[in-house]
Amino acid sequence: MSSNPVTDNSATASEQTDMSGIGKSRVAIDRDLKAIIADVLGLDADDVNEFTPQTGLFGDLPELDSMAVAGLLTEMEDRLDIVIEDDDVDGEMLETYGGLLAFAEAKIIEG
């Protein structure tokens, strides 16, 4: 029992170290990405905040047609300060919210 708090503390410290290396925490990227989706697709912010990694995007959200994809990617570039290449855009990236979030995180770390 007594060792548990020590283990928890070290895990938290290690997480914090990792996040400072990335520059932007997963929580912050998640928040920004949800705001971008709500803004670009004109969705209610409360609804978007309930997105889970499994929430379907392209093919599931009627608002996300191909022109909205172009707007979404451009706005992600602007607000997350990343560059998205043609080859980055595939079905997997846009299939679920979790896929898009993982993509955004990878791009931010890469940039």
Binding site: S66, M67, V69, A70, T74, D78, D86, V89
Partner: peptide, 17 residues
């Protein structure tokens, strides 16, 4: 440049569709 980039992107997506 960004304005142009978003128009090019829309064109690429439409072409691929």
């Amino acid at each position: 440049a960004k304005q142009l980039r978003s128009m090019i992107r829309a064109q690429v997506i439409a072409a691929r569709e």
